[in-house]
Amino acid sequence: MSALHANVNDIPLAGIPALVLPALGETLIMVGIVMAIVVLVGVPLGAIIHNLARDGLFPNPALHSTLSWIVSVGRSLPFLILMVAIIPFTRLITGTNIGIAAAVVPMSVAGIAFFTRIVENSLRSVPPSLVKVAKASGGSSFQIICTAQLGEAIPSLIGGLTINTIAMIEYSAIAGTIGAGGIGYVAVTYGYQRFDNQVMLATIIILVALVAAVQVIGDALVRLTTPHSAARVSRRSVRRPVLVP
């Protein structure tokens, strides 16, 4: 119980927003930059690996297994270890191994590996008959990937993107331990190292709210991009006034 007692070094309640809100801003910037990189690299990479497979558009078993193996390595390392292991690489790119810039590198590496698998999985769920239709309609490989594969998988990709974004929020907190800034950094330095429970609680509330908000937005986008459920949503909203007397 003693740990729950207010500590003399605790940040006063009124001071918490000034500490936590800029950190939230840093987290959003970090996750935002990482997700932009993850989508830009992960979507094409996932689509390429999917189509290098035996029944893909440009099958190449050797290249397929090489790329797939690289992605698996990226997926298999726990983030904390990956982050430390690639410090030389991070320093090569950003010139530093602390701060937001340094956190973005390992987060992007882990995020790309994660999202590549999500993209592959989403593309696998698109009926293969649509690729045949697109081919027979005279589409180039690029056109087929954009329309018959990614285009049809958009709701599933958005669902995956939601999961991926939430994972990146979690990774940003882990990156906080190497001084990356953001909510994770505040939680570690104030909540963990200084036993400031109020700050800890505030970071927890913010993280829960952030993750919940991402999930709600993601779910809404999935519904909006799925014609079947989008139609159901609009029908329900039409019916509702009728039911209310």
Partner: peptide, 19 residues
């Protein structure tokens, strides 16, 4: 790819893009 455009193909009924 150009030649395929000269042949129209009607597939079994699951051939439409759902979105």
């Amino acid at each position: 790819r150009a030649a395929r455009r000269r042949i129209g193909t009607v597939f079994q009924s699951d051939g439409l893009f759902s979105r």
